[in-house]
Amino acid sequence: SRDELVCGSSNVSLREFGCEQSLLSRPDGSASFVQGDTSVLAGVYGPAEVKVSKEIYDRATLEVLIQPKVGLPSVRERSQEQCVRETCEASLLLTLHPRSSLTLVLQVLHDDGSLLSCFLNAACMALMDAGLPMSCLFCGVTCAIDADGQIITDPTAAQEKESRALMTFAIDSKECRVMMSSTKGSFSVHELQQCIAVSQKASEKIFQFYRDSVKRRYSKTL
């Protein structure tokens, strides 16, 4: 059947990816994350004073802002902001900073597919750089299913355009569980489970990268 065809792909890979932390002087934490040609810059401010209208008495208020490259933020950016905010809220220990504000600003530098997963990765690196207490790390993986039913991880913009379905998952570092999912297009339950399994496999690579970059930061030699 078609379901068996799904996993015949051998070119399931992550594009080359890289990250630079603390590259901005003003924010408390900053990171740029690059996946292929897709790149995102993230900056975190906080914990800081919060507006009275946004104050939550038992935890910090997290605000996520996404800045598109051209024009003003629209509905698309709002929905992406919500996906990122909910993932960050799930991993950050917000109760340790009651009545304070955290602001995460994400700037698109170039969009060449898998933008939401790049947002998530940049956000996690920036939160790490800011030294905010978190219960776990998270990463984002985007999977596309093309017209033949093949799974493509970390698709480019062209691959995204030709895909039948597009899914982005946020995966936690402790048990590789799905923290957030955002899907587009139609797919079967089997395909969904396969994409989750692929994303969990891919997340191991990204977490290894996180670990390596932290190790490099605190090493005495390059």
């Binding site: 594009r15 080359e16 990250c19």
Partner: peptide, 8 residues
């Protein structure tokens, strides 16, 4: 040291 890159 704050930057790291990984190949495909």
């Amino acid at each position: 040291i704050t930057a790291l890159k990984m190949d495909e």
